[in-house]
Design a protein around this nucleic acid. Sequence first.
RNA 1: GGAUCCUUAGCUCAAUUGGCUAGAGCACCUCGUUUACACCGAGGGGGUUAUAGGUUCGAGUCCUAUAGGAUCCACCA
Length: 876
Amino acid sequence: MAKEIPKTYEPNKYEDEIYKLWEESGFFNPDNLKLPKNAKPYTIVLPPPNITDKLHLGHSSMLAIEDLLIRFHRMKGYRALWIPGTDHAAIATQNVVEKRLIKEKNIRRQDLGKEKFLKEVWKFLNVTQATILSQTRKMGASLDWSRQAFTLDEPRKEAVKKMFVDMYEAGLIYRGKRIVNWCPRCHSTLADDEVEYEKEIGKLYWLKYGPFILATSRPETKLGDTAVAVYPGDKRYKNMVGKKYKILGVLGEFEVIVVADRSVDPKFGSGAIKVTPAHDFTDNEIAIRHKIPMKQIIDEDGKMMANCGKYAGMTTDEARVEIVKDMQKMGLINRIEDNYEHNIAVCYRCGTKIEPIPSKQWFVAVDKKIKRLGNKSLKEKALEVAKSGKIKFIPFRFTKRYTDWMANLHDWCISRQIWFGHDIPVYYKGEEIYVGSRPPKGSGWKQDPDTLDTWFSSGMWTFSTLGWPDNFKNNKKSGDFKKFHPTQVLETGYEIITLWVSRMIMMSLFAVGEVPFENVYLHGMVLDKFGKKMSKSKGNGIDPIDMIKLFGTDAVRLSLLIGSTPGNDTRISEEKIGSFRNFVTKLWNIYRYAAGTDDNFKLVEKIGKKDIKTLSDKWIVSRLNILIKEVTQELNDYKFSLAGEKLQNFTWNELADWYVESNKIEKNKNVLGYILRNVLLLWHPFMPFVTEKIWSDTNATNGHTNDTNKDTNKKKMLMVEKWPVADKKLVDKKAEKEFQNLQEIITKVRNLRSNYHIEPGKIITAYGKNIKNTEIIGRLARVKFDGQSAKGIAVSAGKIKISLDISGMVDMEKEKVRLKKEIQNLETLAIKTEGLLKNKKFLESAPKVIVAQNKVKLVEYENRIKIQRELLKNLG
RNA sequence: GGAUCCUUAGCUCAAUUGGCUAGAGCACCUCGUUUACACCGAGGGGGUUAUAGGUUCGAGUCCUAUAGGAUCCACCA
């Protein structure tokens, strides 16, 4: 008796245990794989999730794709390494902890002081990090935990310091006073791409401005104006350019100079703009171009400074109201437009309005040509690698997004006035500056109080996780860095091409002179079933852990891998995951059938010609070997969805629906064992748990291993089995065609039964000359062949022609109509194909294959027409 | 304002460099408990591929325009 196997696969029962087995095997670490010395590396660094929160379905999607790539390559014999880690996400984390402290204990970070506050951050961080790591394991991710990293752990701190010092010494990092995006609430600068824009309905104020009338949405900045700019050649202002004017303002008269600058749009407003160099980016650029002085009037709290007379100390919003009031009294307002729609800049973390203010900050120069980069700038080098194809983007169209952004990049402000983050390795003593990984000797030195932009450390992720700088002393590669860099694929979301991908490329090119990765695979966003972004505030998020509990990890992975294409967003719903759970069960039941055929059922690695006995055998073996080739190709091309669909189609519609059925008659357990074995291998990167479970169960029951010691069991894990290679010799197109005919005839009989409502239980008497595979036809079409000629309806497929004794059950007239319709349909097709084949231009310009295909098609149509006509004639 | 993507069955998506009668899954309808599976099986209906032109022997696929949707970048005083 075969042993009891449950009808459905229960993932929750096995998954944790299987994961533990994998982890304990040590094979997540490529150093433990028994590989030939020349085995190629295949490295992926996990984009480190922010430790601000637990993982969402987007992360699950990322993990599923990367694990698929890693498992696929591990099976293909690569030195597959996938490095785990998390990101400290400086400002984001600080904000989360700040909000919590206020909510839970009603204390501000300033009340606690830096040291105590950071302790709170680490307390929080340890909790979320543990959650993230356990969720990651739940997804089945085969990450090498022995190499786990954190963007703010000790090795990464050392690496960051070294990088800063190196860049400083190379002349790429400098300190400068620049206009920065300043968040008055976070009290920090923000990078350009950390700024978000929101629509706001505000007012547009038309000011009487000396000889000008000009429009502004921020009248309070008038206190900082030092110029008026117009479009070059604008007739209205032609004579005024270069002259100075006294302007009456709320604090008395001040002087402006009129300049001509191309950034002014002559069609907007009056064509003249007031220039506030200290508090507007465009104005600042104009000021630099024309050497106009800068006057700061807004401080770091977003308040008017002491030089603003009675408005000092007001917020900009308050000041605006007062100043407008005063200007109206003075008759300086021409008119006010309401409902003026414009965009305002807000902090991407806290939503506070950004104030552009001048500030002393650290910058990375992206346009400075340096010797180390072959007299090129970071920007030039970073563009070069994308244009030359050294780094390939998948899908390709994102190359443009990257190069466009990179080409317009300004110097990167890397200092942040927040507490949580990497310290800046710079020390001050009066006017003296010291830059170095260790504090300078002597007393009186104070370290820069700021921290670094979080992307500075995550930009180093590909090499800081591989032991840089220790593994790159004197420009010589060693250790992990030598073995695994550059990495093969960076798999991430397209929304962080600019934030992250670009920075990794620049930093790697500078630090190690290599690209960080050869390919950038970009996945889309995971949306809810209505196509909306999942977010906590909307409450439409799906928690991956809930889904795993309900349907199992394999189903969750499949639902994320199949039906989504690179770079495109994908919608997901419980129903979708549920249908993949059904598929997992289907696979389980194929195994259940197989195991039930024989107590000693086993997976078969190799089969010979003599094992392949029947037409069904030939067909399924042929189909499998084509499948192996195709799936391998699709996976090589990053077409995971297509590979999955092909596998699913084979497993369900060919193996389960047809081969298992014929196997019930022919009972060829060798072929069944061979097919199932390969199906498990091919499916493993998609759904590692159920495949591993079936694999180990079939190995455990078949008794072909009598040694139970751990070491040999390790070898038998599916995870480290060899990826199958298609055997051309087993592809048999003739058998495929023949089996197709078998399928067709069976389907036609079923069709007739259904059309004429013949009970499924009723066995129909059939007759045919020289019919092969009568048993299979008999069982699947529920007919019984007897030697007598049966009067009735004939059906045919290819060369197979049988008559069914259902004369009494079928409406002959209806059947005639059906046949006529079919013939007509075929005739239309035949005429169309014939026309094509007579077309000289088609014959000249179409590829030979297509012409040949059409010739075959025409013959086929004609044959079928002939047969159908015959059948019609027989009906009388 | 610039760029990219999307629009194919009721819904979600495929369709490789232009080339089999445009395919799946879900949903729907009919039938079914044949010992792998009702998380199933058999059969079925449902498409002028957003619209209008063009290139081509041939267009869902390439080009142009229009309409609708999404995203990214820049930011308008």
